[in-house]
Design a protein around this nucleic acid. Structure first.
Length: 480
RNA sequence: GGCGUGGUAGCCAAGUGGUAAGGCCGAGCUCUGCAAAAGCUCUAUCGCGGGUUCGAUUCCCGCCCACGCCUCCA
């Protein structure tokens, strides 16, 4: 039994994570649809999953992380037609952008990143199995639907009753659609027959040309890569219904056993109090935030510092607050590393390689307890700041400092903050010669105790956007 | 209409049946030639009205407000 607890949507309870095989945890995350750059709301979820994985790792578990790339669906096809480019060209491009963004966020790479278009056969096979069992049926146009009435457990995740499905959302396209000949309005599509709008995007199947429905890819790929480690499945809360519900239906019918034990869902992100939308001009990507002067690590802090099951409200204020708070975390890191003789990169590498602490958390025990209890990051951060305040670094010998450094950096690793990126932001801008010259002149004036000249030069520098920080034996220039 | 979440200090945000973590901002102090930076200290009675209880912010009932979902969506 591990000492990590997560909230399971299936049971609506916080449960200890118990892998199905040894200490190996299979974790499947619904990944991006690659038709545009992922926005910060998408990343809120991906970052939570990253912290989840890191936390499991720190707890001593080995995680197999699978995150799919949806590279064929209505949106990707629409985009490719709009741009007049082949589908794979569009999806390749946005996949690369996604990977670059993940890297800048310091996210761990999933060991496996399967793409929908590379698993068409697996998906067709799954449909065939379901057809054979009577769980699916083909329509005259060559589409295949899942027969909802054939799966009595349908709705167990979202707790929707089947009859609510057909009657809810009055006036929605689902209800007045007469395009499909389904047995029941709630039946969902697994194979979509080729339409004119699909262009040259289609595959051959026993039911004719077409393409897989969206829900199918996750079922097929999760089974393929985590067949015997169906532990954690996670995604945004909007996926609970219908996506995950449909995945469960397909998968459990096709293999006759439980499809994933723990379902973990991340709440959405609001921007300035409302839903993010292009129309309101509050639709941000990492690039947008960086252009405003905040490195990805600051954005990471802002996006993860709320509890993952709670809606968070993203604002510019929250970025400023994140930056200041992160500064404190970084300074403690610098100081404790200095006292212990460790180097940050090397220490984090060792932690990543599996040198986890066990129970020896010292003053950081409370923080770890909160983090491992359903990823209560805000509470964990609170404990970290309290702990930091209690440590008198100047009184520590290197051995004691090393203990603090190790436990502290285990938490930093779990939270995934790239503190070096934070430093880099300040140093990134090298001062122009002219500014350096002024600063040097000021330093000389100070040396000769010419305070008037010194203050005058400091003002001049400030006017040009440069802050000067005096040190014991010199000074540092910072852009303001 | 159905489902759900939330209303805690200027802002953000944890939490608990016994008189409220933390962060940001602000103020004061220390340091400094003065500043800046940094460090330390300080700042709430938990939407409203009832009820249960020795005692509720935390449990129950009602109300008000905000937001989200029910169609594609992290």
């Amino acid at each position: 039994m591990s000492n990590v607890f997560f909230h399971n949507t299936l049971t609506r309870k916080v449960e200890p994570i118990q892998p199905s095989r040894g200490n190996l945890v299979g974790m499947y995350c619904c990944g991006p649809t690659v038709y545009a750059q992922a926005h910060i709301g998408n990343f809120r979820t991906f970052l939570s999953q990253d912290v989840m994985r890191r936390t499991l790792q720190i707890a001593g578990l080995k995680v197999i992380h699978v995150r799919n790339v949806t590279d064929v669906d209505d949106k990707t096809i629409a985009k490719s037609r709009e741009e007049g480019k082949p589908l794979h060209e569009v999806t390749e491009h946005w996949t690369k952008v996604f990977h670059r963004d993940c890297e800048r966020f310091n996210m761990l790479k999933p060991q496996i990143e399967p793409r929908a278009t590379e698993h068409i056969q697996e998906q067709i096979d799954m449909i065939s199995t379901l057809m054979d069992q009577g769980h699916a049926y083909a329509t005259d146009d060559g589409s295949v639907y899942f027969r909802l009435s054939s799966f009595e457990n349908y709705g167990k995740l979202s707790r929707l009753k089947e009859r609510e499905l057909a009657t809810s959302a009055a006036g929605s396209p689902m209800n007045d659609s007469d395009e499909y000949e389904r047995d029941s309005m709630a039946d969902f599509v697994m194979w979509k027959s080729r339409k004119e709008g699909d262009g040259d995007v289609f595959w051959e199947s026993p039911w004719g040309q077409g393409r897989p429905g969206w829900h199918l890819e996750c079922s097929a790929m999760a089974m393929k890569y985590l067949g015997s480690n169906l532990d954690i499945h996670s995604g945004g809360e909007d996926l609970i219904f219908p996506h995950h519900e449909n995945e469960i239906a397909q998968s459990e019918c096709s293999c006759n056993s439980q499809f994933f034990k723990y379902w973990i869902h991340c709440a959405h992100l609001l921007v300035e109090g409302g839903k993010m939308s292009k129309r309101l001009n509050n639709f941000y990507t990492v690039d947008d935030i960086e252009k405003k002067g905040f490195p990805p690590v600051v954005l990471r802090y802002a996006l993860t510092s709320g509890a993952y099951r709670q809606t968070i409200n993203f604002t510019m204020d929250s970025l400023h607050a994140s930056q200041s708070a992160l500064g404190r975390l970084k300074r403690f890191s610098d100081d404790i590393l200095g006292a212990s003789g460790f180097k940050r990169a090397a220490l984090l590498k060792a932690i990543e390689k599996g040198k986890h602490l066990g129970d020896d958390w010292g003053v950081f025990a409370a923080a770890w307890k909160k983090l491992s209890n359903d990823l209560n990051i805000p509470a964990a951060l609170g404990s970290i700041f309290t702990a930091i305040k209690s440590v008198r670094i100047e009184e520590l010998d290197p051995e004691a400092a090393a203990k603090y450094a190790i436990s502290y950096h285990n938490l930093i690793y779990a939270l995934g903050y790239d503190l070096d990126q934070f430093i880099a932001k300040k140093v990134r801008v090298d001062a122009p010669e002219e500014i350096k010259k002024l600063a040097f002149e000021r330093w000389e004036a100070r040396q000769s105790k010419d305070w008037a000249t010194s203050d005058q030069l400091r003002n001049a520098l400030q006017k040009q956007g440069w802050k000067i920080l005096d040190k014991k034996d010199g000074y540092v220039l910072e852009p303001m």
